[in-house]
Nucleic acid binder design. Structure first.
Lengths: 224, 224
DNA sequence: CTTCAATAATGAGAATTTTCATTTTAACAC
DNA sequence: GTGTTAAAATGAAAATTCTCATTATTGAAG
């Protein structure tokens, strides 16, 4: 699940990011109009948190552009209590939900879940592609009903690819997510290459329909 | 850093817990008076978040008892906006800070940091005990200035013991923290025993002043 | 179509981590 | 004290993970 946060208030941005990361979302941030517009319009997110009460009012502009491109339905507006009542305007422009500052992160979480549920991206602890099924709860990959016996890192990587299917997964994001604290940006990515190799070997030798493509210079992608 | 949250509102409790866990605190929770009073009075926490506006008003009672026992100075009061103004009462009873609902978690974070700073427990990325120094940033343990070359799991475990020094660390908490997602409560703890053994071997053979004691039936403890 | 440099894949060996069978220790009842 | 049971420690083997040297591939430039 990938979420874009558009928010200029640094501390709030950080708080939301921390929280969403702890909930295992993939998070991108934008603090200014041009970055935000670019990301929101070019890339696909499962959910976009948009602060429309940016100093220069550009939040609404982004929403307008998104509506023009038909890219709405997964936007949750964040608005300061003391701003004028853009609630109607916002929802009119295709926003999915509306949240007034300040709010509890649990509140935000519930709204995000609702958006994802509407997109049918929620909850399912199982992912299936052709002959292959990944069960997150059992930490199992079945290909033609046979347990591939992925080991820890292989499973963690595949799970990350699956939750980001059809999306570019950078090597950094992968390492960060699977190796966590002990991953050092100064390191080479040899350990990633090595694990990707092993995972692919298992996928291939079992004729799984899952395949992990390389994106030169950046990372990997799992296409459905 | 160990934090106790006393809060009866489930969603808020969850949100705070998630956030603090993501910040690598060790979290305990209490939702009712007796649990809360017991924990707050018996155990030591670096910081206690106390919702005094509990339905039966028992929050203030806990604070009173804590003052009587001299266990204050690390309590942050959380209070609903619409509750009567217990701010004065609360601070009078020895609370360290006061936060009005709703608040941003970043706000809470800042207050917690302030409490820890006052207790001089903050920030230090280094821990020293006798001849042994653990650097969290470098992921290094130096004994008499010699790098013990702990490997990943050994370091993660020791770091967890150190941030919980003089406190009981249950096997479950240890496994949860060091092995994370891939740890299954149904598993035996053989892997923990094995890693503890290796860590101890390195500590002992280097004559480190750090030692990890076993607490029969429960877990381990690092005593300073 | 070459050449070049950077990125990625690969195989093999090294190191780490986990598992397992066995031994030791701790708590408790007698 | 002895006996009993569960928990923990231990050593060695098995499995996983990481490192490293080598080879292959990619994209860009000439």
């Amino acid at each position: 699940m990938k979420i874009l946060i558009i928010e200029d208030e640094y501390k709030l941005l950080e708080a939301i990011e921390q929280f969403l990361l702890s909930e295992k979302f993939v998070v991108e941030k934008a603090t200014d109009y041009s970055t935000a517009a670019q990301k929101a319009l070019i890339y696909d997110y499962d959910c976009i948190l948009l602060d429309i009460s940016l100093p220069d009012g550009s939040g609404l502009k982004i929403l307008e552009e998104m509506k023009r491109e038909g890219k709405t339905g997964n936007v949750i507006i964040i608005s300061a209590k003391n701003s004028l009542d853009d609630k109607v305007t916002g929802l009119d422009l295709g926003a999915d939900d509306y949240l007034t500052k300040p709010f509890h992160l649990s509140e935000l979480y519930a709204r995000i879940k609702a958006v994802l549920r509407r997109k049918n991206l929620d909850g399912s602890a199982v992912f299936t592609l052709g002959n292959s099924t990944l069960s997150f709860n059992e930490r199992l990959l079945l290909v033609n009903s046979i347990d591939l016996k992925l080991n820890r890192k292989e499973f963690d990587m595949l799970a990350f690819f699956v939750t980001n299917k059809n999306r570019l997964v950078t090597k950094e994001a992968l390492a960060e997510h699977v190796w966590g604290d002990s991953f050092d940006l100064a390191d080479s990515f040899d350990f990633v290459y090595s694990q990707v190799k092993n995972l692919r070997k298992k996928l291939k030798s079992s004729n799984s329909d899952i395949a992990i493509e390389n994106v030169y210079g950046v990372g990997y992608k799992l296409t459905t």
